[in-house]
Design a protein around this nucleic acid. Structure first.
Length: 488
DNA sequence: GCCGTTTTCGGCCCGACTGTTTTCAGTCG
C-alpha cells in the first residue's frame, strides 16, 4: 500500500463529501491529508505499524484521519467511502470536471435534470434544458457546452524545460521593448516544478496599457482570451496558456509571493498572518487598512515572522516550520556544480566527439566530466562492447594529458532493466537526502549544448531540499575521487 | 475534521469574476 493509494482514497472521499454538501472544512481536511501523505518521505504502511500516534503526529491528522489511514492500509479500502458511494448519485462528482461547475452546481444539475455523466450533461445543454434549472441561465448553458467541447483536448502540463523556452523569450520580448520596468514569471515555473500548467507573468510598468499591449502581441500568441487594464490572458499556438498581471511597485513582492504559490503554502502563510492580526493578500500585508509590507517578498515573509523561503520549497511540506525555527537548508546552487557525471559521445548515441564534449565542459568551468556511453544492451543507442570501452579509455587518457583544467572520467551507462524503462514512480530526492544518501546531478547530455540542462537537475535537487553537501558533484575532484573510492 | 501565546468550541486564507440576482452564491486561482 503506497502513500499515493491512501491519498487517492482520501481525495475520493473529499470529492464525494463535497458534492454531498458536507462542511467545506471537513472536505479540506481530507484533501490536506491526501497532500501530506503524497509528499511524506516515509511509507504510510510503516507509520501504521508503529501505531496510531505516528500517523496522528502528521500535520492535519487527528485521531479520526489516523484511524482511517490505518484502515486503508490494512483493508485496502474504507468503509466510509463505500457508504458515501451509496449515498451520492453515481457520476455526479464527475460533472465537476467541467470548469465552472463546482459541487453545488453539479448537485443542482444532477437533481434537476437527472444527468449523471458528461454525455448526459451535453445532451441536456443542447436541448436547452440547463437554462431552466434555478440559478442557471443561457450564458451558463452556453459556457457548459463550450467547456465540454474543450475538455478532451484539455491543456496538459508541459515539461519545465519546454515552458522555459517560451518563458525566456517572453521575458526578453517584454523587457527588451522598454514597455515594462520589471518582469518575472511566477507560478510553478518559478518553483521549478517538473511540469508547468501555464505561465504567470508579473510586471511593473510606467504605463499599464502599453505593457498589456506588448504582452498580447507576443509573436507566438494564437488567441487573446482576456484583456483588461491590468491583466490579460492568451493562448499560444502550442496550447500553452499565459497570464499577465501588471502590479504597482509597492505590491510587487506580495504579488510575486502570491502568484508563485503554491496554494497550500500561501494558505499557511496567511494563517500565520492572521494569528498576528495581519491580512496577507496579493496586494500586500495589512494591519487594518494600513500597509505594513509587500514591496518585496522579504517584507511579506518578515511580516509573518519568517526569513525568505526559496520558491522551490514553497509546497507546504514543512518549509514554514523549518523557516520559523531557523532550520531552512542552504540549498545547492547551480554554481556549486563542478562537473557532469553522465554524458554521451558519438561513441554511442551522442552527437559530439569526446574532445568537443571535454572542451565545452572546460568552457563551463567544470573540473571534471564523466563520459558514460551506453553498454551493448542498448543496441538502438549504438551501445559499445568491452573493446570499445577500452579504446575510449585510452582516448580519455590521451585527452587528459592535453586538457588544462578539466579531468575526464571514463564511465558507462548500464541499463538496469532489459526494456530500459524506469520501475520507480517518483524524482524521491528528499527521502534520499533525509536518510543521508548522496545524490549526483547530471544531464545525460548527448550534445555539447545539452550540458546546459544542469540547471533543471539542480532545480529538482533543490525541490528535494538538497544542500550542497548532499550533492556529490559539488565536491572538488580529489574529494570526489576519495568518496568514490570509499564507496567502492 | 482539525486545532488552540486570545479559544477544548467556534473558528478555519483572500480576492476577483461571472451570472444570476436585486444583494449575493458559486467558482476559481
Amino acid at each position: 500500500m503506497e502513500n499515493a493509494e491512501v491519498a487517492r482514497v482520501f481525495r475520493e472521499v473529499a470529492e464525494l463529501l463535497e458534492v454531498g454538501n458536507a462542511n467545506p472544512f471537513r472536505v479540506r481536511a481530507y484533501r490536506n491529508a491526501a497532500r501530506v501523505l503524497e509528499s511524506h518521505p516515509r511509507p504510510v504502511a510503516e507509520l501504521a505499524k508503529e501505531g496510531p500516534d505516528a500517523l496522528d503526529a502528521l500535520p492535519g491528522f487527528g485521531p479520526d484521519l489516523a484511524a482511517k489511514a490505518v484502515e486503508v492500509v490494512r483493508t485496502g479500502t474504507l468503509r466510509m467511502l463505500s457508504e458515501l458511494k451509496r449515498q451520492v448519485p453515481e457520476g455526479v462528482a464527475g460533472l465537476m470536471k467541467v470548469p465552472g461547475v463546482g459541487p453545488k452546481r453539479a448537485r443542482a444539475l444532477s437533481t434537476a435534470l437527472g444527468v449523471h455523466d458528461l454525455a448526459g450533461l451535453e445532451r441536456a445543454a443542447r436541448e436547452g434544458r440547463i437554462r431552466e434549472v434555478p440559478g442557471f441561465g443561457e450564458k451558463s448553458e452556453a459556457r457548459i457546452l463550450r467547456e465540454l467541447e474543450a475538455l478532451p483536448g484539455g491543456e496538459a502540463r508541459v515539461p519545465l524545460a519546454t515552458a522555459a523556452q517560451y518563458g525566456e523569450s517572453l521575458l526578453a520580448w517584454m523587457t527588451g521593448s522598454g514597455a515594462v520596468t520589471r518582469a518575472e514569471i511566477a507560478g510553478s515555473y518559478r518553483r521549478l516544478r517538473e511540469t508547468v500548467g501555464d505561465l504567470d507573468l508579473l510586471v511593473t510598468a510606467a504605463d499599464h496599457g502599453t505593457a498589456v499591449e506588448r504582452f498580447v502581441s507576443f509573436p507566438a500568441v494564437e488567441e487573446v482570451t482576456a484583456r483588461g487594464p491590468t491583466r490579460a490572458a492568451v493562448r499560444l499556438r502550442s496550447g500553452l496558456r499565459m497570464d499577465l498581471r501588471v502590479l504597482d511597485e509597492e505590491s510587487f513582492g506580495a504579488g510575486l509571493h502570491y502568484f508563485t504559490g503554491s496554494k497550500p503554502h500561501n494558505i499557511a502563510v496567511r494563517r500565520l498572518g492572521q494569528a498576528r492580526g495581519l491580512k496577507v493578500s496579493e496586494y500586500g500585508v495589512f494591519r487594518g487598512r494600513r500597509r505594513v509590507g509587500g514591496r518585496t517578498e522579504e517584507e511579506v515573509f518578515a511580516a509573518v515572522g519568517l526569513p525568505w523561503i526559496p520558491p522551490e520549497l514553497r509546497e507546504d511540506r514543512g518549509e514554514i516550520e523549518a523557516a520559523s525555527t531557523g532550520r531552512l537548508p542552504a540549498l545547492v546552487e547551480a554554481r556549486d556544480i563542478r562537473g557532469d557525471l553522465q554524458t554521451h559521445t558519438v561513441a554511442s548515441d551522442g552527437r559530439d566527439t569526446l574532445r568537443a564534449m571535454a572542451e565545452a565542459a572546460e568552457a563551463l568551468g567544470y573540473e571534471y566530466l564523466a563520459v558514460t556511453d551506453h553498454s551493448p544492451a542498448v543496441r538502438v543507442a549504438g551501445g559499445m562492447d568491452a573493446a570499445g570501452f577500452r579504446k575510449q579509455r585510452r582516448a580519455v587518457d590521451r585527452l587528459n594529458g592535453r586538457l588544462r583544467t578539466l579531468t575526464v572520467l571514463a564511465g558507462a551507462e548500464v541499463d538496469i532493466r532489459a526494456d530500459g524503462s524506469l520501475d520507480l514512480d517518483d524524482v524521491r530526492v528528499r527521502a534520499a537526502v533525509e536518510r543521508g544518501a548522496k545524490v549526483v546531478v547530471s544531464t545525460d547530455a548527448h550534445a555539447a549544448q545539452e550540458l546546459g540542462f544542469m540547471r533543471w537537475g539542480v532545480g529538482q535537487a533543490r525541490r528535494g531540499w538538497a544542500r550542497r553537501e548532499d550533492v556529490l558533484n559539488t565536491l572538488p575532484l580529489d574529494e570526489l575521487l576519495k568518496r568514490l573510492h570509499r564507496a567502492r
